[in-house]
């Protein structure tokens, strides 16, 4: 992506005071504004991190009192939190694996083949992303209630997993498809000319080339799953994931450890982004 020179949307030979104002606006005010916007975006993240080193009295961690690192040294020191995080990780991992596989196959079919029903398939992929989560969660709940017998009802980890795979498929398809569209098919033809069969061509040429797209899709699916609250709320029953734990604790006061875990998740995610940037630079 070539960086274009900044285009000044203002031109004119003579500068009146209005023009000078417009130029100041253009040069400085936009940048100052962006600075404030970034501060606004970062403020809650800063608050989450700040209150992970707070030492509140009682359960209500909403006012700053004193600095302490004791919750960082004992991040799972409240009952149930470890299990909640473990459940979230388990569901996120399983739903990522399944959704990434199913979604990649759909993306391959959509980009590589012309077939009847491609329009309907695209629609079916798009609609879940345009549906409010609450409607998807609610409709899954009515289905589980209507089926009314195990393993679907009562609700448990399996019903959450089913739901997470469902909403992740569309995002995987969109992400992998974006990578496939810019794919040079001559590479495959070359492999076939050199005697590779379709199976070998796929695994030795196609797959390695679309792998970055698949990894990006998997990371997206994982982060959507681990932070999902609304659909999980409807399909969890008594199962407690990390977001469900926060929701349950919100009324009586969120333990400081939750802020520690939240900050850790943020740092891990930032670390992943930094790593991908570094790896991308090295490859270039």
């Amino acid at each position: 992506m070539a960086r274009e020179a900044a285009v000044t949307e203002l031109a004119g030979p003579r500068l009146g005071w209005l023009d000078r104002f417009a130029r100041v606006f253009d040069r400085y005010l936009l940048l100052i504004y962006t600075g404030f916007a970034v501060l606004y975006l970062m403020l809650p993240i800063f608050v989450i991190a700040l209150f992970s080193v707070n030492d509140p009295i009682g359960r209500s961690n909403v006012a700053w009192r004193a600095f302490t690192l004791k919750y960082w040294l004992d991040p799972f020191g409240v009952p149930g939190l470890f299990d909640a995080v473990a459940t979230s990780l388990k569901i996120a991992f399983a739903s990522t694996v399944v959704a990434t596989a199913l979604g990649t196959l759909i993306a391959l079919a959509l980009v590589r083949y012309q077939f009847r029903g491609a329009g309907a398939t695209n629609l079916l992929i798009f609609i879940p992303m345009a549906t409010p989560e609450i409607v998807m969660g609610a409709s899954l709940l009515t289905m589980f209630v209507a089926i009314g017998r195990p393993p679907f009802f009562p609700l448990n980890e399996l019903t959450i997993l089913i739901a997470h795979i469902m909403f992740n498929i569309s995002y995987v398809v969109v992400t992998v498809r974006a990578r496939l569209v810019g794919f040079d098919r001559h590479l495959e033809e070359a492999a076939m000319d050199l005697g590779a069969n379709e199976w070998a061509t796929f695994w030795r040429v196609t797959f390695p080339l679309i792998l970055p797209g698949i990894i990006a899709a998997a990371l997206l699916a994982f982060s959507l799953s681990i932070d999902d609250f609304v659909i999980t709320n409807f399909t969890a029953g008594r199962t407690v994931t990390f977001p469900m734990y926060i929701w349950g604790a919100a009324r009586i006061g969120i333990p400081v450890q939750v802020n520690v875990i939240g900050t850790l998740i943020f740092l891990v995610a930032v670390g992943f982004v930094a790593l991908s940037v570094v790896l991308g630079r090295r490859r270039a």
């Binding site: 596989a101 199913l102 979604g103 196959l105 759909i106 391959l108 079919a109 590589r112 083949y113 077939f115 398939t121 079916l124 992929i125 609609i127 879940p128 409607v135 998807m136 609610a138 409709s139 899954l140 009515t142 289905m143 209630v145 209507a146 089913i162 739901a163 795979i165 469902m166 498929i169 569309s170 398809v173």
Partner: peptide, 26 residues
């Protein structure tokens, strides 16, 4: 293409389309 599509689309049919229909029934 249909073999590639089948597993994912069946999942969406079973856990997106059918529940929406069930919600209307409910």
């Amino acid at each position: 293409p249909y073999l590639l599509l089948a597993p994912g689309l069946l999942w969406l049919a079973a856990f997106y389309v059918y529940p929406a229909f069930q919600m209307f029934i409910s």
